[in-house]
Amino acid sequence: MRVAIAGAGAVGRSVATELIENGHHVLLIDKSPGSIRSDAVPGAQWLLADACEMSSLEEARLDTCDVMISATGDDKANLVISLLAKTEFAVPRTVGRVNHPSNEWLFGESWGVDVAVSTPRLMAALVEEAVAVGDLVRLFTFRQSDTNLVELTMPDHSPLVGTRIADVPWPPDALLVAILRDTSILTPDRDRALESGDELLFVTASDAEAALASLLAPKG
């Protein structure tokens, strides 16, 4: 897979390193000469250019990329880059970094963003996930499909403790994808029984979240 990353700061370089280690081809683009540090990510291609300019993206051969990641520290730039990548170069997947939470609502289909990554929101979700038992915590939003990755830790009082997964009347738009139990990641096999303290991961529609929370951890 060929991936272009706009923004060769600490975030862009870290993402590039991970992708290269996983066998992908990465191009880092930055308009600041001081950010072009080929020794920092030796396996990447580098381009000194402004990724907000059409000519720069043409030079980067963006039309041959599978993914465009906008990882600059400027939300306006990340939106412009995502929009150009999607509308002018038909890049199949765009990922936009959200620097300021107040701008998160902009990072959607209208600006060509397939996946928005908001570090403040993600950190807050991880804090909630670590301390909340019996509360549904939204970890990630898939904007194109209006679905979310959510987590709920089974409380002791849940009526479904000891119930086989196949016997649970799950909401139709909620899919159990994994169970975290102690230090293990378990598949949601039909005959597996739910236990107190299980961390359940779901992909679910937004309007099914309340029914899911009520089913697994009813209040009162």
Rank of each mutant, 00 (worst) to 15 (best):
V91A: 05
D146G: 04
A40L: 11
R143Q: 10
I165W: 14
V11Q: 09
A178N: 04
G9A: 00
A211I: 01
A125V: 08
W170Q: 14
L186A: 05
S214G: 08
F140Q: 11
E18F: 00
T141L: 07
I36M: 11
L152K: 03
D198P: 05
A116E: 00
D173Y: 09
A51S: 07
A85K: 07
E129P: 00
S14E: 10
L200P: 07
E109K: 12
S14M: 09
A85M: 04
V11G: 06
L83C: 03
G34N: 07
S214Y: 00
D156L: 06
T141W: 10
L122E: 03
I185K: 06
L47Y: 07
N78L: 09
V203L: 11
V203E: 01
T72A: 12
R143M: 02
S206V: 12
G220W: 14
D74A: 14
A16S: 08
G134C: 02
S38E: 15
V115E: 11
P42Y: 15
E53N: 11
L180G: 05
R164E: 05
K76P: 00
K219E: 07
L62S: 05
V91R: 05
R181H: 12
T64C: 01
S102C: 02
T183Q: 14
D74W: 10
G43P: 02
A49K: 05
D39E: 15
C52L: 02
V117S: 04
P171K: 09
A6K: 04
S196C: 04
D30P: 03
W170G: 03
T94E: 00
L83I: 02
H24S: 08
F107V: 12
E128N: 03
T204K: 06
A208R: 02
L106M: 15
L201M: 06
N22K: 15
D191E: 07
G34A: 09
H25P: 00
A208N: 11
S145L: 02
D114R: 02
D156S: 08
W46F: 15
E151M: 13
A125M: 13
S70C: 15
S196M: 02
T64Y: 04
E59R: 10
D66C: 06
D66F: 13
G34M: 08
V177L: 02
S35G: 11
D74N: 15
D198R: 13
G43Q: 03
S206I: 10
A44W: 15
L47F: 12
S206N: 07
S102R: 14
D114G: 03
T119S: 06
K86A: 06
G162I: 07
L186V: 10
A71D: 03
M123S: 09
S32L: 14
K86S: 09
A16W: 00
S214C: 01
G134S: 04
G108D: 14
E58W: 03
S82M: 11
G162E: 13
A8L: 00
T141Q: 13
A125T: 14
A44N: 10
P188G: 14
L200S: 07
L212R: 05
E199F: 13
M54A: 12
T17P: 00
T141G: 08
D189W: 10
R97C: 08
F89T: 02
R192W: 13
V168C: 09
E88C: 09
L186D: 10
N103F: 10
D182Q: 11
D173I: 01
G197F: 11
E18V: 07
